[in-house]
Amino acid sequence: MTGAALRVEDRGDFVLATLDRPEKRNAIDLAVIDALHELCASLEAHPRTLVLRGAGGAFAAGADIAQLRERTAADARAGINTRAFMRVHALPMPVIAVLEGHTLGGGAELAYSADIRIGTQSLTIGNPEPGLGIIAAAGASWRLREIAGEGIAAEIVLTGRILSGDEAFAAGIVTHLHADGDAAFATAVAIAKRVAALDPAAVQASKRVLGAPRSAHPQVDLTEQAILFDSPEKHRRMTAFLERKQQR
């Protein structure tokens, strides 16, 4: 799939989706949201690891303010960005975000929806929405707290604090930090290739249990494990492991 707002490429071990509005620092407009829904529909039907990045040295500088200014209370209740980002987060295989330059507002919330975030030294990430008379309502208020903890989440959401790449790494918002986007993308590719070597059913089950509420454990883990224990792929992989061990 190729679109003006979101370029989607099949890279074999993963799907690469690039936010491609560099003249707007990849601000998220309705065209991007529609493209994300189209991409999610494809990955829900045919699960693959997704790598998200932005073109032109930025991930996404926020939502498109010109469009956001015209949205109404009904639009807020519809959760235009929220629903798209929740769908990204719920994809069956891992989502990896490469964060370079401006990653603000809605762009930060899209980044928070990824499972793994890789940053660069140029990264600036945060939620300045209250300065525009709105709140960060597309995931920051609950997802950021789970990622970085109550204190950092409160300072970002309540004060509009913008974190540098080093600060985001220290807070655990990104788990890798690189000098530039090329190095960050190379790490994303390496992670995607590592995932591709695993059993897809086990990866998808791992993502489901990781996202389950605390009250669902341990039963959700045991249920998923019971399915995998009876799978031919589990038997094949364990047999191959034991045969390799015997040959050493």
Rank of each mutant, 00 (worst) to 15 (best):
R161Y: 04
P200I: 05
A186V: 03
H178K: 04
R236M: 02
D182E: 08
L228Y: 08
A153M: 02
Q204H: 00
G139M: 05
A188H: 00
T187Q: 15
F241Y: 11
G149E: 00
K234G: 04
A190S: 10
I173S: 11
A153K: 00
G211H: 10
L228S: 09
M238T: 12
I162Y: 15
P213K: 03
A190H: 09
A186N: 05
L177Y: 11
V189T: 12
R214M: 04
A196I: 11
S231Q: 02
T159R: 07
R214E: 10
V189K: 11
L222E: 09
P232R: 01
E233C: 01
T187F: 00
D230N: 09
R214H: 12
H178P: 08
A179L: 13
H176L: 10
L158S: 13
G165E: 05
A240E: 12
L198N: 07
D230A: 14
L210D: 02
V157W: 02
G211P: 03
S215Y: 07
L158A: 14
G139D: 07
F229Q: 09
D180E: 15
H178C: 07
E167T: 02
Q204P: 06
I162G: 09
A171R: 15
V174L: 10
A138R: 04
G211W: 02
L228W: 11
I173E: 06
A168V: 12
A216K: 09
G181Q: 10
V195K: 03
I191D: 06
K193Q: 09
S231G: 04
T159D: 05
A196P: 04
F229P: 04
R145S: 01
A196W: 09
T159K: 01
E155Q: 08
Q219K: 14
R194V: 07
G160D: 02
W142G: 03
G160H: 01
A205W: 13
A205C: 06
H235I: 12
H217W: 06
A196D: 14
F185Y: 14
L158F: 04
E155T: 07
V209T: 08
A201L: 11
G151L: 15
A171D: 01
L210G: 05
T223R: 06
R214W: 12
A137V: 08
I147Q: 01
